[in-house]
């Protein structure tokens, strides 16, 4: 009697079945002439190979530069809305100063890119715009939204956190120690921006550290939310209340492989 165990029998039968399927899929069918008479839906277009996409120090810096332009464009749009009035009037000075800071950051990062022999990048990250900023601005400027000013600041706060996290994150990826320091110096200033905006949204010394909403139990916006810089996604709750009373929450994440600004990408 054969000494094949139950486990081996199952393995062999599975292997035989898989082999048969592969052969059936790949093999030419006997007696079938390809006369073009078999119905097909459409023509498959010829494909163009994607450009080589290597994540280099230049690519990381170009991505950082693109986020600076996202921020510049957002502050410009925010100032154009003319919504920083009343209690929010101080935000006008913040927005102007922060926009200028981001322009300086963009220039500094592009200078580093040029020094590395790379091609500078002087426009916003399209994917970040498409995924986060355009939907956010659509929600904020919706006619039914009564909190446009506060929501614009919330968006700016989220964007500053995103920028700070991005610079913090690239420190681990950049190969040149000097560039790591250059990157985090900018990230530190983005963190300062975020802290100041957090105080506009949730003012007072008691709100500087982490607190929770007593009703929902969710964390409130805080200038100093934790002991270490986070790399978690950023929650942005904005827009007019929905039918159930809740508002839309967008989750922002730092640029990843599909939102990096590779060498082949131009403005």
């Amino acid at each position: 009697m054969s000494q094949i165990s139950r486990r081996e029998l199952l393995r062999l039968s599975g292997l035989s079945l898989a082999s048969g399927l592969v052969l059936a899929a790949c093999g030419k069918q006997t007696g079938v002439v390809d006369d073009g008479a078999i119905a097909r839906l459409g023509e498959s277009p010829s494909t163009t190979a994607l450009a080589e996409a290597e994540v280099t120090d230049v690519v990381l810096l170009r991505t950082a530069a693109s986020l600076e332009y996202n921020a510049i464009d957002t502050y410009t749009a925010a100032l154009g809305l003319g919504v920083f009035t009343g209690d929010l009037s101080a935000a006008t000075d913040f927005a102007k100063r922060f926009r200028d800071d981001h322009q300086e950051h963009a220039d500094a990062v592009n200078s580093l890119i040029r020094a590395l022999g790379g091609k500078e990048h002087r426009c916003a990250n399209v994917r970040i715009n498409d995924l986060y900023l355009s939907p956010a601005l659509a929600l904020i400027t919706d006619d039914k939204n009564e909190n446009v000013g506060v929501d614009v600041i919330a968006l700016a706060h989220a964007l500053e956190n995103l920028a700070a996290q991005t610079y913090q994150g690239v420190v681990d990826l950049i190969s040149d120690p000097k560039l790591r320091a250059d990157a985090i110096r900018i990230g530190q200033q983005e963190s300062r921006h975020a802290a100041l905006l957090a105080q506009v949204l949730n003012p007072g010394i008691a709100s500087m550290g982490p607190t929770n909403d007593p009703t929902t139990g969710k964390p409130n916006i805080a200038a100093i939310p934790a002991a270490f810089g986070s790399q978690a996604n950023i929650q942005l709750t904005i827009g007019a209340p929905k039918a159930d009373g809740s508002r839309t929450t967008l989750l922002l994440e730092t640029p990843s492989l599909n939102s990096l600004v590779y060498d082949s990408i131009s403005c």
Partner: peptide, 11 residues
């Protein structure tokens, strides 16, 4: 660490 110390400083 520095990104949080920067927040401390701002506050």
């Amino acid at each position: 660490i520095t990104t949080i110390e920067a927040r401390h400083a701002a506050m």
